[in-house]
Amino acid sequence: MALLDLKNLSIEYKLSDGKLKAVDDVSLTIDNGDILGLVGESGCGKSTLIKGIINLLPSNGKVTEGEVVFNDEVLNKLSVEDMRKKRWKEISLITQSAMNSLNPVYKVGKQIIEPMIEHDKTPKDEAMKKAEQLFELVGLEKGRLQDYPHQYSGGMKQRAIIAMSLALDPKLIIADEPTTALDVIVQSQILERINMLLNQYDGSMILVTHDISVVAQTCTKVAVMYGGKIIEYGDVNQVLKRPNHPYTMGLKNAFPSLVGDKKELISIEGTPPDLSKEIIGCRFAERCPFVQGKCRKGEIKKTSVKNGYFYCARAEERDELMKQADIPSTWESN
Score class of each variant (00 low, 15 high):
178 P>A: 11
180 T>S: 15
183 D>M: 05
153 S>F: 06
143 G>R: 14
143 G>P: 00
165 S>Q: 00
111 Q>H: 07
124 K>F: 09
136 E>H: 12
164 M>S: 14
156 M>C: 01
190 I>H: 06
122 T>G: 02
141 E>G: 13
181 A>E: 05
150 H>T: 01
171 K>S: 15
130 K>H: 08
164 M>C: 07
131 A>G: 03
136 E>P: 00
163 A>D: 04
108 V>G: 01
123 P>Q: 09
186 V>D: 07
178 P>K: 09
113 I>P: 04
115 P>S: 05
188 S>G: 13
183 D>P: 06
121 K>G: 02
126 E>N: 11
169 D>T: 11
171 K>C: 00
142 K>E: 15
122 T>C: 10
173 I>Y: 03
148 Y>S: 03
181 A>Q: 05
135 F>K: 04
175 A>T: 06
120 D>P: 01
177 E>H: 10
136 E>S: 13
192 E>G: 13
163 A>S: 13
112 I>R: 01
150 H>Y: 13
140 L>E: 01
124 K>Q: 11
159 R>L: 07
143 G>T: 12
107 K>E: 11
149 P>C: 04
158 Q>C: 11
151 Q>T: 10
108 V>R: 00
108 V>W: 01
134 L>N: 07
134 L>Q: 07
178 P>Y: 11
142 K>S: 15
172 L>E: 03
181 A>G: 05
140 L>W: 02
131 A>W: 00
187 Q>T: 15
128 M>G: 04
119 H>G: 08
161 I>C: 08
142 K>Q: 15
126 E>H: 05
181 A>Y: 06
154 G>Y: 08
167 A>R: 02
121 K>I: 00
131 A>V: 03
162 I>T: 04
188 S>W: 01
188 S>K: 13
174 I>A: 05
113 I>H: 04
136 E>D: 15
183 D>N: 08
158 Q>F: 10
109 G>K: 05
136 E>C: 06
187 Q>Y: 13
158 Q>P: 08
127 A>R: 02
129 K>F: 05
170 P>R: 03
167 A>I: 01
178 P>T: 10
140 L>S: 06
124 K>S: 12
169 D>K: 14
121 K>W: 06
112 I>E: 02
155 G>P: 11
134 L>W: 02
132 E>Y: 02
107 K>G: 12
126 E>A: 13
178 P>C: 10
158 Q>V: 14
186 V>W: 05
119 H>Y: 09
169 D>N: 14
156 M>A: 07
123 P>D: 14
189 Q>F: 08
120 D>N: 14
134 L>S: 01
179 T>E: 06
144 R>C: 07
166 L>G: 04
184 V>Q: 11
184 V>K: 08
139 G>P: 12
152 Y>H: 11
127 A>K: 07
147 D>E: 11
150 H>I: 10
165 S>G: 00
186 V>S: 08
129 K>D: 14
121 K>Y: 08
158 Q>G: 10
109 G>L: 06
136 E>K: 14
180 T>A: 14
185 I>M: 12
175 A>S: 08
122 T>L: 13
147 D>G: 04
192 E>P: 03
111 Q>A: 11
126 E>L: 13
165 S>I: 00
152 Y>T: 02
151 Q>I: 05
148 Y>R: 03
116 M>E: 11
172 L>V: 09
